[in-house]
């Protein structure tokens, strides 16, 4: 998770990536993908119903980004904040995909085979943890799109609020309130089914 104090390091890494893109677009883009694929994929997972869709969505977002970069001159690339820029493209790609999907009949519901677990210490905790994660993922899926995006960006991939605001295209203060309202709604959704998860939270 990225804390605010990591920002100078991130800035330096981003500057390095921008220079690589300007020097050689394709080689630089390989570095950009390597540096961002975890964040982009983790967010894509929360915007897709199936892991395979998330992979396609993340790939589609990177391809859109590449096609845009081909038309940018050095000055434009120099001014890019790569991470929020990529996540904005991902968000738009997800919206397009959702719109296209709503025009077509949906696929049959996914059947996810239960993972086989060997007996042994820690298994119970793992089962419990998997349940919690699935529960949490489903609750996230029930948030309004903007709140879900805000919570995912801030808490799943740990973006600073300023970048969350950039992706949502709103002022920092508005992003903050999307994040906290999203969290509140998550708590309410989970309170019914997972009261244990809420124990020990720092309430205000």
């Amino acid at each position: 998770m990225v804390d605010e104090c990591d920002e100078p390091v991130v800035d330096e890494a981003q500057e390095h990536l921008r220079r690589a893109l300007i020097a050689d677009l394709d080689a630089g883009f390989a570095d950009v993908v390597r540096a961002h694929e975890q964040v982009v994929y983790s967010v894509a997972l929360r915007l897709s119903s199936l892991p395979a869709d998330a992979e396609d969505l993340a790939a589609e977002a990177f391809l859109r980004a590449y096609r845009a970069l081909r038309g940018y001159d050095a000055q434009r690339i120099q001014g890019l904040r790569l991470r929020p820029w990529l996540l904005t493209i991902l968000r738009n790609a997800a919206r397009n995909a959702a719109r296209d999907a709503s025009r077509r009949p949906g696929p049959p519901p996914a059947f996810e085979p239960a993972e086989e677990l060997s007996a042994g210490p820690g298994v119970e905790q793992r089962v419990e943890q998997d349940h919690v994660q699935r529960e949490l993922g489903m609750a996230l899926g029930r948030l309004p799109e903007t709140q879900r995006m805000a919570v995912v960006l801030r808490h799943v991939v740990g973006l600073p609020t300023s970048e969350v605001a950039e992706v949502l295209g709103c002022p920092d203060g508005t992003a903050k309130s999307h994040i906290s309202r999203g969290l509140q709604r998550l708590r309410a959704l989970l309170a019914e089914r997972r009261p244990a998860l809420l124990d020990g939270r720092t309430d205000r």
């Binding site: 993908v33 975890q38 996230l140 991939v157 740990g158």
Partner: peptide
């Protein structure tokens, strides 16, 4: 101390190895 924030952080996942091959 916020269990929800912690649990959310655990939803981050490593990208599949084939992702770059699709790009």
């Amino acid at each position: 101390a916020d269990p929800i924030a912690d649990a959310l952080g655990a939803l981050a996942a490593p990208p599949p190895t084939g992702l770059a091959d699709k790009v």
